[in-house]
Design a binder for these strands. Structure first.
Lengths: 134, 134
DNA sequence: AGCTCTAGTATCCGAGGGATACCTGAGCTA
DNA sequence: TAGCTCAGGTATCCCTCGGATACTAGAGCT
C-alpha cells in the first residue's frame, strides 16, 4: 500500500511552494483557460467568470513572474494586452490536468465523504469505547 | 482555438475545488508526511515543522471530512491520536506526487524566471516600441 | 462636451490564517 | 499534597490577504 518514494523535507517544501502558487482560488482556472490559447485580459475575465479585475491582475502578475505566462502589451488606444502560456506554463498544465482528471473522477467520493462526516461520523473511530466527543 | 481537451466550466470548478483543498499552505505537507505511514498528532507536527496546533487540527479535520485521512483516538491519558491516509488519500497522493516531481524538476526554472522578473524585465514584452511602463 | 472602450491602480472592508494562552486528567516528583 | 508534565486539542486575538467598488488614462465617436 505504501508508495515508496523519497520524502525529503526540501522536496515537500518545493511541492508546497508550487502548489501554493497553483492552488489558489483562481490560478488553475486562469491557466486552464489559457491552455486553450492566448487571450486578452477581458476575454480571460469573461472566460473565467466571477473573478475581479484586481484578482485577475494579481494572478496574472504572479504567473508572469514565475514564468508561466507571457504578457504582451500592444500600446494602442484603447490598450490591448495578450496573455499566453509559456512552454513552462504548458508543461505545468500537464500534471495539473492529471490532478484535474483525478478531481473529476473523485469529486463524488469526496462529496460522499463530506456528507458522511457532516452527518456526524466525526470521531467514531475511537479505539476503546468512549465513542462520543461532544 | 479549439480545446485539445474538454474544458467545461464545471470541470474547472471541480479541479479548482480540489486544488483549493489540496493547495493550501499545509495540506500537501501533511498528506506527504502521512504518505510514509500513520503518525500521531505531535509526530506530524514535528515532521511538518512550523505548523501551529490550530492549523494542523484544522487541516486534519478538513482532510478527515473529505475522506483523505482517518483519525483514530486511543482514549488513554495522556490521549493518543493516530492519523493515517485512507485509500482515497493514497490515490490522491499519486497525482499530487506527480505534480511534486514536476515541482522538484522545475523549481530552478521558476526561480530563474522570478529572478529575471524581479530584475525588472516586467513589461518588456511590449509589441510596438514604448519599451517602458513608467 | 461628454461617453465609450481597455486594462489596469487605489481604496476600503470582512473573512480567514496564524500565534498565544488555556484546558483536561492521570501519573510522577518534591 | 502541590504542582509539573504529557498529548491533543479549543478559545481568543490580531493582522494579513482576498474581494468588491471606484477611479484613471487617452484616443475616437456622437
Amino acid at each position: 500500500m505504501k508508495p515508496r518514494h523519497e520524502h525529503r523535507s526540501e522536496d515537500c517544501r518545493a511541492v508546497s511552494d508550487i502548489l501554493q502558487r497553483v492552488g489558489d482560488k483562481w490560478t488553475v482556472l486562469v491557466v486552464g483557460k489559457l491552455g486553450d490559447g492566448r487571450l486578452r485580459f477581458n476575454e480571460l475575465r469573461m472566460a473565467v467568470g466571477g473573478i475581479s479585475q484586481k484578482m485577475l491582475t494579481t494572478t496574472l502578475r504572479g504567473l508572469e513572474r514565475d514564468g508561466f505566462v507571457t504578457r504582451t502589451v500592444y500600446p494602442t488606444i484603447p490598450p490591448r494586452v495578450d496573455y499566453e502560456l509559456t512552454d513552462l506554463g504548458y508543461e505545468l498544465l500537464e500534471p495539473v490536468n492529471r490532478l484535474g482528471e483525478w478531481a473529476r473522477k473523485n469529486t463524488g467520493r469526496v462529496n460522499a465523504a463530506r456528507a458522511r462526516f457532516d452527518a456526524g461520523v466525526a470521531g467514531m473511530s475511537v479505539r476503546a469505547g468512549v465513542g462520543s466527543r461532544e
